[in-house]
Design a protein around this nucleic acid. Structure first.
Length: 225
DNA sequence: GCGACAG
DNA sequence: ATCTTGTCGC
């Protein structure tokens, strides 16, 4: 799947791009109940942010075995600015997605979706550009207020911002720090949380994110020598 | 002016 | 994200 795009030339331009694409987000979903495949996406950096590697791994949603993967080494095309984070990783991630043989049924992104100052985080951006259902899973919060969910895996509490619920703070493992789940595209929040729990049978982060993380980190190590 | 601030 | 020793806990 090839998706054309040019890096924004300024912060104002990047924000304008988000405002233009935001209306294209499908907030209804509800997304697949039992997807056959799920994809994990992640990016690793090195050389003082001058080098990066983006990876996508496609897992069998039932067994969580890796069915396909792709990794791309490149240069960041935008500085790190909270809220505009997507422009930094998007080009390389789209290139990696383009290298897949299997088209995944769901994207699980390492970052937020609607839980974003303009309601258009990385997961929304990737979802809109690929047309695929997408979920955002952040390790820390970007926006919103919340109170700790119950202590058991599956417990959750609303993430509220500006008078609306933009995501859910979800406990994926008993007694372990929760993650921040938000809708990216073509998914309901309830289903997004259900899908996240389905890929976290053993660790705090989705198995898909873990396999992608390992792949891009290995690719960086190989690229540095 | 002083914090907060996905990865 | 990444830079990094020791250290707490299972």
């Amino acid at each position: 799947m090839r998706v054309g795009h040019e890096p924004p030339g300024s912060v104002a331009e990047a924000m304008a791009v988000q405002d233009r694409l935001r209306p294209l987000v499908d907030l209804v979903g509800p997304g697949p109940d039992t997807p056959a495949t799920v994809a994990g996406l992640d990016v690793a950096y090195a050389e003082g942010d001058d080098l990066l590697a983006a990876a996508v791994t496609v897992l069998d949603a039932g067994t969580l075995a890796v069915l396909d993967s792709a990794v791309r080494v490149g240069r960041p095309t935008f500085g790190y600015v909270p809220g505009l984070f997507a422009f930094r990783e998007l080009p390389a991630l789209l290139d990696a997605l383009d290298g897949l043989t299997v088209r995944p049924e769901l994207l699980i992104c390492d970052g937020h979706g609607l839980a974003h100052p303009r309601r258009f985080g990385l997961a929304c951006h990737l979802g809109v550009l690929t047309g695929l259902p997408a979920i955002g899973v952040g390790k820390t919060r970007l926006v919103g207020e919340w109170t700790p969910p119950g202590p058991a895996r599956g417990d959750g509490s609303p993430l509220r911002d500006g008078g609306e619920v933009v995501g859910r703070v979800l406990r994926t493992r008993d007694g372990v720090r929760p993650v921040f789940v938000s809708v990216g595209h073509r998914m309901s929040l309830d289903n997004a949380c259900a899908q996240v729990l389905a890929v976290t049978p053993r660790f705090r982060l989705p198995e898909s994110t873990r396999t992608a993380d390992r792949l891009c980190r290995d690719a960086l190590t190989a690229a540095r020598r």
